[in-house]
Structure formats: structure tokens, C-alpha cells
Design a protein around this nucleic acid. Structure first.
Lengths: 147, 147
DNA sequence: CCACAATTACCCACATCTACCCACTAACCG
DNA sequence: CGGTTAGTGGGTAGATGTGGGTAATTGTGG
């Protein structure tokens, strides 16, 4: 793993739907500032995933290897692969998200970018607040380790 | 274990959100004063964790090893990993905490730093008072060891 | 195939924030 | 009591975020 993505950033999208990606995070994507990203939907939560192109390739391979005829798999692939879109930074380090993705995640003006190791999650602020305020039930696996 | 962190310190954050880390504790982080820290949220209490970078790496490994698809685990990882942010000391030995973390823990001006072996906890003073005054129920695991 | 509308890409201008620096005061130690 | 270290506050240059104008491109309908 090159560099794990972490951190929570509140970002304002402007009226044109442009998203000013935090400079620090942009630098982690690679020394060459004009790297390509791939955005798609998180089928199990109302938010988007944003992968650096190389990480996306790896994920896509795994997804392609799934048994397509198994029930559910096809639905998953349809959305996950279908919504995947290459996006690039404009001259000011901003991303323009396709309208279809913005609509899926309910992105309006205030959004939240959340680092998740090999990818980012992008949330509408209200939905993020909801997630955050839900009590986190500590799963069994966690109760046995020290943090 | 290099050096266990202990001690409770009342600290004032200044208007810019800078946190003057007690010099004694800073020295314990390592002889080189410019060591990196990682701050994140404690998902089960309204306070922050502050790890020395190496300790964080170890914790992150444990967290990544958890079964991601298990319900609860995903929520936990999203918050715990998501909020993790590298922070460094400025020239005066102060830390600048990201706004998102300050907001999570309700940190305003008066905060409390609590040593916790391999990490620190950072509390808003009021919330710390509340916790302190709550009766401590002794869990089973404790009844079998001598203090 | 053309005309028009909508969208996107590129550019520039400005507001805001942050990292870094310096200065001052308070606390500690010999 | 002087000297050194720690804690506090604030100024400033440069980086970053924000907004908008305009040209190029795409899509749509006639």
C-alpha cells in the first residue's frame, strides 16, 4: 500500500457542481498532479466511492471475477460498474462529478469527503451526519482487540 | 513498549485552534521533537485519540484485518479510519487539530489531555467532568486481577 | 446539415486560510 | 534573583479555496 487515505473534509461544491479536492489529499494521489480518478456508487450506502485509477483497476478485476449468474451479483455489477466514471482535475484541482452520480448520492452543496484507505467516500453532509450519529455497535471482533 | 503515556493535563486551545502540547509528554514521544502523530475519533466516547505514528500503524493493521463486510465493522472502520489525520508540531510545539475532529469532540477552548499507555485521549473539559463524575462499575475482567 | 441550447473546459481574479516566524509573558530551576 | 524553558498571542507571505466569465464542445431539434 503506497499511502493510505484518511481524514474527513467538509467541502462546498460550487453552483457548477465542481468539487475543490483538498490539496493535501490530492498530493497523496501521486506526485504527478494530473492523475485520473474513477468515481462510482457505493451500492450499500447512499454515497460515492472515488478511487485512484490504479486501485480501481484492481477492484474491477475482482468484480469481473464474480459469478455473474448468481442472484444479486448481476444487480451489484450493473450499478457498481455501470456508474463508474473517469474524472480528472481541472486546472484548479477541482473535480466535476457527473450529474447522475451527484443525484445518486444526493449531493447538493455541502459534501463530506472521507478517506478510506484505498479510496474515498463522498457524502452529502446531512446523510453523513446521520451516519455519524448512529450509535456504533461494537462488533464482536472488535471487543477482543486493544486499540 | 517504549514509554507508557500517563497523566491528566488541562490545556487551553487558542483562538486559532492550536493546542500547546505539554513539553514533558512531547519528550516522551521520542527524542526527535518533530515526530508525527495521528489523531482520530474514539467511536465509543465523544473524545479523540492521539497516537504516535508508529503506534497508529500497528492499530491500523488490526483494524484492517477485521472482516469489512460484517455489519458494524464497516461503520466502525468508516469513522475510525475516516477521521484519522496526521498532525505535526509547529515551531512552538503546538498541534493544529483539523476542524472536523474538533467538531466531533466538541473541543472549544478548555480541553483535557489524558495519557492512555500507547495513546492519548483528548476531551472537552465539560465532557471530561461528566465522565469523571460517573460511577465506575468494575467489569468482570477486572475482578480477577490484582492492582 | 445547420442553428440553437446546454454543458463543459479553461482561464483569471479575489477571499480565505495556514504555516511559519517573531515577540512577549509566565513558570521553573539553579 | 537571574537565566532558561514553556506557554501564549498575533502578523504576514504564500498556499489554498471560491467564484465567475468566456470559448469550445456536445447534444438536440428543426
Amino acid at each position: 500500500m503506497a499511502q493510505a487515505f484518511t481524514g474527513v473534509h467538509n467541502i462546498n461544491m460550487d453552483a457548477k457542481g465542481r468539487l475543490a479536492f483538498p490539496a493535501r489529499q490530492r498530493d497523496r494521489l501521486g506526485p504527478d498532479s494530473n492523475s485520473t480518478l474513477v468515481a462510482t456508487v457505493n451500492v450499500s450506502s447512499p454515497c460515492l466511492f472515488i478511487y485512484p485509477q490504479p486501485a480501481w483497476e484492481q477492484v474491477l478485476e475482482k468484480v469481473q471475477a464474480l459469478p455473474t449468474m448468481r442472484p444479486g451479483v448481476q444487480n451489484f455489477q450493473r450499478l457498481f460498474v455501470g456508474y463508474a466514471t473517469e474524472i480528472e482535475f481541472d486546472g484548479n484541482g477541482r473535480l466535476l462529478l457527473p450529474a447522475s452520480l451527484r443525484e445518486y448520492a444526493g449531493l447538493d452543496k455541502k459534501v463530506v469527503l472521507v478517506g478510506q484507505i484505498n479510496k474515498f467516500e463522498l457524502w452529502d453532509e446531512h446523510r453523513w451526519q446521520d451516519v455519524r450519529q448512529q450509535p456504533v455497535e461494537i462488533p464482536e471482533e472488535l471487543q477482543s482487540i486493544a486499540l
